[in-house]
Design a binder for these strands. Structure first.
Lengths: 225, 225
DNA sequence: TTCAGTCAAGAGCACTGCTCTCTGTTTTGC
DNA sequence: GCAAAACAGAGAGCAGTGCTCTTGACTGAA
């Protein structure tokens, strides 16, 4: 993202943003599947072919929206984390921020955490932004430095190996039990938010506020915060 | 599903099945989004408009596939459960069957557990088949009759109320703590399978066999089996 | 002032879901 | 046993899609 120098570059950056904004608006209305380049261009008062000057294909536009969504939820998580203080409280704040983001941006949530779009291959540009949210959680864990749990289910040699290499990758100086539990917590909360956003809790824990609050505490215990 | 009486009804049932089979084949190749009525009819050697005699719209065909998918995974779970014996072993078998089904039918899994299709409203016909898998798990819990856990995170009054009414709905004579944990286990394992099928574990716990095995045990402990 | 680079526009291709009409066939009621 | 009704497939057509290619206008730097 370099600053635009010429007037031309400035209007180009402006229009690129407008296209994404309009696409996001449509995403919220008709979903990724219904997103139409022609409809976007129509709304912006331009002809559809002109849009290809900015995004070479529908997939490229989708990728831009995906990157924005990852950054958006990542930023929400980062901003919710005070960075210091009681780890349990930090953990709680990050999770609430994530859920709130998911509930206010259900279609963008579905875009990044829902079923993969067939034939669409996420390019490398997405991995950086995608890591921001999990990294915010890892930071809390790293600062808290939880002890190995007293009671834990047995872990196979294969699982220990995977957990160890993941621990090294994240520079998380924690026992394999904790790393495994952290993945578990992340998976569990992903499942919970997805169930809620995708409407699978209908008829049981709906509204899910009370359950979510309960679960955050349980997961904090689980990873030893 | 009544037995076809006339010859016409027989070929109609036959062709309906063929349409669904071909649609399922395409689903695996191009996903729900790419499923095309014209392509299906073309493959079957008929004209696209003829297909509307069997399914009044694309959505109706999709609904039929969704119902079939729910029944398929539900049946897999039911058949994996011996119905008697060690509850922990039954629990384990059902979960493995579910994961295996998801891995062999990723697109059908995405269809029923992935992001909702915008504009598509699941009709009543789906709720029965959709309940089969969770019901298989409830059956194990009902037979095992687990005790209230000694240590548990505090539950709010609101959550207790929701858990109690869910318990009554499922005719599960268990303490609210257990019901809540059962929902938690179901959510957690849904999250795990989704992460795996949707490719979010890439670079961490992949292959996920060892982790899944570990998690099943952990979840069995969690719900008190 | 020239002129390459950039832009929007328009026509057009191959595809989609879906509707309507037409013709032929099968089942049903008398 | 036969006519009426129900059903089946074919074909044309509508409005929409992503995407490509060409054309003519505009811009900014040499």
């Amino acid at each position: 993202m370099t600053a635009p120098r010429t007037a031309r570059e400035r209007v180009r950056a402006e229009l690129t943003r407008e296209i994404k904004d309009e696409a996001r608006r449509q995403l919220a209305e008709v979903g990724a599947h219904g997103l139409s380049l022609r409809a976007v261009s129509r709304e912006l008062g331009m002809v559809s072919s002109a849009l290809y000057r900015y995004f070479p294909s529908r997939d490229h536009l989708l990728t831009a929206l995906i990157v924005d969504a990852y950054n958006s939820v990542g930023e929400a998580a980062e901003q919710a984390d005070p960075g210091t203080g009681d780890p349990r409280s930090r953990w709680r704040k990050i999770w609430h921020a994530t859920r709130d983001w998911a509930k206010t941006h259900p279609h963008e949530y579905a875009l990044i955490f829902g079923s993969p779009i067939p034939g669409y291959q996420a390019p490398r540009d997405t991995v950086g932004p995608a890591a921001r949210l999990p990294m915010a959680l890892v930071a809390v864990l790293r600062d808290a430095d939880p002890d190995e749990p007293a009671v834990t289910a047995p872990m196979s040699a294969e699982l220990r190996k995977q957990a160890r290499s993941l621990s090294e990758l994240l520079e998380l100086d924690a026992p394999v039990e904790i790393v495994t539990r952290a993945v578990g917590a992340w998976t569990h909360l992903y499942g919970t938010i997805s169930f809620e956003v995708f409407g699978q809790y209908v008829g049981s824990f709906e509204p899910a506020d009370a359950y979510f609050e309960h679960l955050i505490g349980q997961m904090a215990d689980f990873v030893g915060l």
